[in-house]
Nucleic acid binder design. Structure first.
Lengths: 346, 346
DNA sequence: CGTTTTCATGAAAGCGCTTGCATGATATTT
DNA sequence: AAATATCATGCAAGCGCTTTCATGAAAACG
């Protein structure tokens, strides 16, 4: 007679205990891998659990144990591949642990973000992963004060001294700009990201530093303020190309805007890279698939997710604040959207 | 003196009750919008809660109330924009309710999927959203038996009679194929999706039906079995173009594979759409951004997510099984990867 | 004005589990 | 062999909340 593990009703540790002939406390110990259980007892209990199809009630465990075995992930939105890559990294890392992931979308609303953080930190999750936080100052202090574990992802904090993983934005922008300069470009347009984000600032600074290093004047009219969305890339390109002395290259602060630039340039009947070179940032998958494939600065997004998850898990385990900020290297990926400027004499 | 809502330690309903001068049961009633609370009492309690920065402990509520206010989302992976779009829809809909979202990735492992479902259904979540389920037969019966709320997304069930939202795959494939036929194509290659998924079968059938309607023989060598990933699109295109009498158009069962086809065709020095027309399926964002923009069958992914979430919420609310399967319409999006076949005499 | 109904509120019993403490049962020591 | 240390296990007190039932007060009734 085969005993089916039919989970018809709820099986509690009591039933398992009764079946296995031990007290429910022992069952609990087995669940929690407590050392103080005789191996053979453990085996017996485990088998019984299996046979009865027992699944521990997470809520109860959380309530009694004081932790939820769940971490919260707060993302601004889900519209872009950017976030997707990061989530993938986090998910990969989490799959090794027994932590669950609760996903929250702030829809880029600062108020909502702070609110979520407050609620989440209130016992719903054991730790928090904050992607591209909008107004972290509002709550980081509280979080730190309460020693609530969290890791910031892709946030160039205002020198806050808290766990974060980011990328070398400055370096990436510097390298890309320098690359354009070495190709012979001297008028290089720049489309910024959302300027309330630290990474946007860093990229802009990297761009400016490269110009300075190479003694190229930094003309303010060549910098257009965008917000990381495609339409702004389009608008930025139009604005830059409408200048009486337009740039020969445009460096967009992310790939999505770079695609907007591509569109704009094409719509104006100009060719890439012959007339205008274009560089993006992020290296999201489709940047390689558009035409022409975009030269871009790779941000190790998936890796950032992984590292952040690791950091958080470590903090959770050791119950102490981990090393502070980790910066993962960016890398220039040269593809077909860049070339030396055409002889402008023509 | 302003009382700061410092959430220094945990505030329980007891403290709120004491502060507000009521019993903790009343506080609970306020939290749960129980009718039996005098309006003025409710106000007083609400204010106290605010002042103290009270946040209800979800775990405790779940344990006591028997529901988690959380729904589980099971996705095969996070690598593609396909899933991202669906999640966006779900997220949007959920943001109106007070349900949380726990995300699980099965990494396309059937065993893991069944396992997750078993665990989740065990009180961790109130309902389940299953995207592109792999081997649902394994657990759907159990779920149905136990009346556990769930909705399948993009699953062409084996006539299971359960809540699901999908798209008119057959119709979409039929329309796209017919469109190619009307352009003058007679040899149309087809790259299938993962054949263990119902939608793949439906698309294949739609393709075949269109051929039949137009009295075009259905040559088996023109159908290549893929798995929805880009490399298979590439491989499929190579295989089809290597035929001694190659097709003049290739219809890939999703956009990602269509991009593989694009690559393959380009690498062979042929041009799209001049030499080969290419059609995809899904209309993921980047299908419009690659070169050339791909003609594709739009699947309303975001909407599918939204509708599925709505269905689940309804089931949860009414505590009864909702209408069964909902099919959202697909639509042919004509872009630049298709044209009439070149005069083959040349 | 006394009685019945209505209604806001309080008291208390859990929800399923973790964990510190107590208790026998072995194992170790001299 | 007696005394002590070690270990497996049981007991019971919560974790913070929901919810049923009981209760006293106010409202409605004759």
């Amino acid at each position: 007679m085969k005993t089916t593990p039919k989970t018809s009703a709820k099986v509690t540790i009591f039933e398992v205990a009764a079946e296995a002939g031990v007290s429910f406390a022992t069952v609990s110990r087995v669940i929690n891998n407590d050392v103080h259980v005789k191996p053979e007892t453990r085996q017996r209990v485990l088998k019984t659990m299996q046979r009865l199809g027992f699944v521990a009630n997470r809520q109860a465990r959380s309530l009694a144990g004081g932790k939820s075995n769940t971490i919260g992930l707060l993302v601004p939105d889900l519209g872009t591949a950017y976030i997707g890559e990061i989530i993938r990294g986090i998910d990969t890392e989490l799959s090794w642990s027994d932590l669950d992931l609760i996903l929250y979308t702030t829809h880029r609303t600062a108020a909502k973000e702070a609110n979520y953080v407050a609620n989440l930190a209130h016992g719903m999750v054991d730790g928090l992963l904050l992607v591209l936080p909008r107004n972290p100052v509002d709550y980081i202090e509280t979080l730190t004060l309460r020693k609530f574990p969290f890791v910031l992802i892709d946030h160039q904090g205002t020198a806050e001294n808290c766990p974060a993983v980011g990328a070398t934005n400055w370096q990436g922008a510097y390298t890309a700009t320098e690359y354009l300069i070495q190709l012979g470009h001297e008028r290089i347009g720049f489309i910024t990201g959302s300027m309330d984000l630290g990474c946007s600032e860093d990229r802009l600074k990297g761009y400016r530093s490269a110009l300075r290093t190479h003694h190229i004047p930094d003309k303010p009219e060549l910098v257009y303020e965008g917000d990381f969305f495609q339409p702004d890339g389009y608008a930025g390109a139009c604005a830059l190309l409408d200048l009486e002395n337009p740039p020969t290259a445009i460096f967009a602060s992310n790939d999505v805007m770079a695609m907007g630039v591509l569109d704009a340039v094409r719509n104006r009947g100009q060719r890439i890279p012959d007339d205008i070179s274009v560089v993006g940032f992020d290296n999201i998958p489709q940047s390689a698939m558009v035409y022409p494939p975009i030269t871009t600065v790779q941000q190790p997004l998936e890796q950032m997710g992984r590292v952040a998850a690791q950091m958080l898990i470590n903090i959770l385990k050791k119950n102490e604040k981990e090393s502070n900020r980790i910066e993962l290297p960016t890398e220039l990926i040269v593809r077909s959207s860049t070339s030396s400027p055409r002889d402008r004499a023509g």
